[in-house]
Simulated assay, not measured.
Amino acid sequence: MPFAAAAQEAADTAEEAAPPAAPVIEPEAISALDRMAAALQTLTSFEVKSDVTTDVVLEDGQKIEFGGTLDLEVARPDAFKVVADSDTRTREMYYDGAKFTIYSPKLGFYASFDAPATIGMTLDKARTEFGIEVPLADLFTWGTDQTVRARVKQAMVVRPETITGRTCMHYAFRQEKVDWQVWIEDSGKMLPCKIVITSRVDPAMPQYTAVLHWDIDTPIEKASLAFAPPADAHEIAIEEVDDQEESEQ
């Protein structure tokens, strides 16, 4: 069967290419994260266009993969726009230093909440108070969360690989409930080329993958990221998640 043969070939290739797993933290892998974080924090504005895939696990355990795109525009310290587009749904998220707004163009509804003064605090409020996870939010805040190192249980350098024509070093990390991999461009820029996140809570181990394309040279004005509701859009109330629901996430 072609699928079986392809799966066996992939398994054989992985067995030959992948280093043996070991419960160790390689200093070079952590150092690479630090260098990437420092590079991200120097960016005052940037745009990232990403090709993303997401696994959905059916009741019988079968995984179904969906594709889409994710575009981020950021003007630090207090503005961003995120557009997540796929065949199944589209969501837009805006932050202008005063309000966070989430908008569904296909449904024609939007909702907002009063936001704190920085991107990091706004992302935290969206997640903890309203259950809204902003995709690839780590790109906004990497390097500002000092607990990341404490959560890493394993870290390894895999090998250099080519991602859309770029030579990137592949690193793999393990935490208590999630495995994640990052490919970092090996050109002095130290920007991530690709990110893969694998849930270890679900036995099917679904993955989220994003291949990133950066524009760090074109200035982005804060005013261009503000939300302007279309004439036919309707505002609805945004609901806070209760403490019990938040504690289970």
Rank of each mutant, 00 (worst) to 15 (best):
W180A: 06
D215M: 02
S86I: 03
A98D: 08
E133P: 13
V74G: 03
W180P: 10
Y110K: 06
D242L: 04
V48I: 10
D78S: 10
D232A: 06
Y95E: 00
E248F: 13
A204W: 07
T209N: 12
G120Y: 01
D114L: 07
I238T: 05
A6G: 14
A172Y: 07
G68T: 02
I119D: 06
G120E: 02
R91A: 01
H170F: 11
T118V: 04
D179Y: 05
E240C: 03
K194V: 04
V148F: 05
A10Y: 12
Q8R: 13
I195S: 10
V56D: 15
I197H: 07
D124K: 11
Q244Y: 12
H234G: 08
T13I: 11
H170A: 10
A6P: 12
E239I: 09
A231Q: 07
E28N: 01
R174I: 13
D145R: 09
T13M: 14
E9C: 12
I184Y: 12
M1V: 15
A233F: 02
T88R: 15
E185I: 14
D12M: 06
K222M: 04
Y110H: 14
A18R: 12
I102K: 03
E248P: 10
M205P: 10
E9P: 06
V178E: 15
I238L: 13
A38G: 08
P219M: 06
A7C: 14
S86Y: 03
D85L: 04
M156H: 01
Y110N: 10
D96N: 08
I132Q: 01
E176W: 02
A155V: 00
S112K: 12
A210G: 11
Y171F: 14
L70R: 11
F46L: 04
Y95C: 03
T198C: 12
F100M: 08
G120S: 11
P20Q: 05
S45R: 05
M169Q: 12
G108P: 11
V196Q: 15
A7D: 14
R200K: 15
T167E: 15
E28Q: 00
R151T: 14
I132Y: 00
S187V: 11
I25Q: 02
S50P: 08
T69A: 06
R149W: 00
D179F: 05
S187I: 09
M205C: 12
D87W: 04
Q146F: 00
T90A: 09
D85C: 01
E176D: 09
F113G: 05
I220W: 03
D85Q: 04
K177C: 09
D217W: 00
E248W: 10
K189W: 01
I220A: 03
A79H: 06
D60Q: 07
T198V: 15
D60R: 09
V196A: 14
K222W: 01
K63G: 13
Q249M: 15
L212S: 03
V57F: 07
V57N: 11
P203I: 11
S31M: 02
I216E: 02
Q249H: 09
T42Q: 07
K63C: 11
L107E: 10
V148Q: 08
A233D: 06
A21Q: 05
I132F: 00
A237I: 09
A18N: 13
S104T: 15
D85H: 02
F66H: 15
F130H: 02
S31H: 01
E73T: 10
I195N: 06
I25H: 01
D242N: 09
E16D: 13
